[in-house]
């Protein structure tokens, strides 16, 4: 092959394997996979499954950083396997399921906890006023759009949960993505549901479990910056608290 771009090299993969029917605990298994240098880690896993070991279990769908299914620990760092390029990993690549989530099988984790938390924060528009079709569409200025657009980029890939040590230590913590999404809707000019969401996120297991490690924002593949969202929720919740308590004293 003359084109350097298409050069094939043997890549050493160490993949964490766990079969719930036969294994007491997960263990690393080594594979040598012939890879094109321009591949991503997901391509290497696909080759492995197609040619070397069809029993390997992992999730993926879009292969283009949109679906958020292929999150895994790559050399200890939460990554989308479709965004981790082989050319950035010269040595052996260690691939494990996302940290902090139970392992279902091989690289597949149990995401039930995150799904339940996502539901709790009501990540959808809750209109403040009932609106009929005759009222026409909602109007939103570019300025109003900018207030939440960044937080709307979340693809629910859960890398931030795998990065957040507080979630690892306190699994009750609602966590970065869910709170950032609550913030996304709170910031939306069309929304009137903030009070309902505050009941979930302005709690001890909500935003107040966050200690601003900032790891969530460092690993986010979509630059959502959940850590920023959580700090803003803290500031707003603190203002709420002082208003609720001191204003009610003033009124009395």
């Amino acid at each position: 092959m003359s084109d350097n771009r298409m050069e094939v090299r043997q890549v050493e993969l160490e993949v964490l394997r766990y079969n719930p029917e036969t294994d007491q605990e997960p263990k690393l298994q080594k594979f040598t996979v012939p890879c094109v240098n321009e591949w991503c880690v997901l391509d290497a896993l696909n080759y492995l499954k197609d040619n070397l070991d069809p029993t390997l279990a992992y999730r993926w769908s879009c292969h283009m950083q949109v679906c958020g299914s292929c999150g895994m620990m790559i050399n200890g760092e939460p990554k989308l396997a479709c965004k981790a390029m082989l050319r950035d990993y010269p040595g052996t690549i260690r691939i494990e399921p996302l940290a902090h989530f139970p392992v279902e099988r091989d690289l597949v984790t149990v995401a039930d906890d995150f799904m339940a938390k996502l539901k709790r924060v009501k990540p959808y528009l809750i209109p403040g006023q009932p609106r009929t079709l005759e009222d026409g569409e909602y109007k939103q200025s570019p300025e109003q759009l900018k207030r939440y657009r960044q937080y709307a980029m979340c693809i629910n890939c859960m890398l931030c949960y795998a990065a957040c040590p507080e979630y690892g230590l306190q699994p009750k913590f609602i966590g970065p993505a869910a709170i950032a999404l609550a913030h996304r809707y709170n910031q939306d000019s069309r929304d009137g549901g903030r009070d309902e969401r505050q009941e979930e996120i302005a709690t001890n297991e909500g935003v107040w479990e966050c200690t601003f490690v900032g790891a969530c924002s460092e690993v986010c593949p979509k630059h959502v910056d959940p850590a920023a969202a959580l700090q803003q929720v803290k500031v707003a919740s603190t203002v709420d608290w002082y208003l609720e308590h001191f204003m009610s004293w003033v009124k009395k």
Partner: peptide
Amino acid sequence: MSRRPYVREVSPTSWY
């Protein structure tokens, strides 16, 4: 086929 999710514990004293 039975589910038996494996939980990886996080050490509270040496996680960092």
